[in-house]
Amino acid sequence: MYGGGTTFEGIKAEKKDDPVKLAEFEARIERGEKIEPTDWMPALYRKQLIRMIEQHAHSEIIGALPEGTWITRAPGFKRKMALMAKVQDEVGHAQLLYSAAETLGKSREEMIDDLINGKSKYSNIFNYPTFTWADCCFISWLVDAGAIVNQLANAKGSYGPYCRALDRICAEESFHLKYGHHCVIYLAAGTEIQRQMFQDALNRWWPPMMHFFGPSDKISVHSDTLMKWKVKMGSNDDMRNQFLDMYVPKIRELGFVIPDPKLNKNEETGRWEYTEPDWEEFKRVINGDGPCNKERLAVRRTAEERGRWVREALRSPKTVYQMPLA
């Protein structure tokens, strides 16, 4: 989620799709064509895409909260201006993504209802608190970096509106990454207290960062199909490995210690070896029992409830629903 670690539902008793149409659909994807909203698509394809894009959108608005809380306390004009623009971008991404998901037939209201009722998930990492400014810097740099790894892969997927949204999102995220990196370099080059502040943040955030890409994928027919349809673009482990490849050296370069003594790249296999993160904790948090789940959803729920009269007043009886351009 946030483009990765998406949970896919096993669907057993799907209606059989028309074999001729299905073959045609698969051939198009094979040729690298994009599927557009009005094109024929299998029911499972539609369902999984809605789920994935929706979770991604939710992750953007919920993800705005742990950083948003630092806007009013950001240290100085430069950081404050940049952080405001950055968090605004995240909300903008949610807007783009909800539009992309709406093209598949689920409205933004339905999606947000499912979010606040706990039916629909978002990226687990945003259920952890940002105690200090350094936590906020960790998110801007490394969580966004992880998101980019996922999103660049997903941008090569088969559904046109989602790919186009992701292209725009990745362009903006790359600025976030530079901003976040700059914030961390500043702390790294600062006083002992500033260095320690980031080290503490790294210690706190490393386990959820490892969770971020999701548990190891189980090989299944189901996941093969989604790969063939270019809904799922790579295994969770591949994404995690790619992230470690790119960012472990950068973190170490700044003199910080990653809190996992086993973390090491096996040069023969090209894969990173690490202490397996606590997947029981992951499950517990994803099911609602994390440090900030209740708070995050309560904020969203309050915003929805307090904003209802505004949305109702803007909805004139003459308003006709229009499918968004995505």
């Binding site: 004009f77 201006m81 909300v91 807007q95 909800y98």
Partner: peptide
């Protein structure tokens, strides 16, 4: 204005208040 970030009655208003917050703080700077 910046306190509306993530809290607006709809996403579009979140974004609008954030833009205005950025302008105001930029002007004060």
């Amino acid at each position: 204005n910046s306190e509306w970030t993530g809290f607006g009655p709809m996403l579009e208003e979140d974004i609008a208040f954030s833009s205005m917050a950025q302008d105001k703080i930029g002007h004060s700077f």
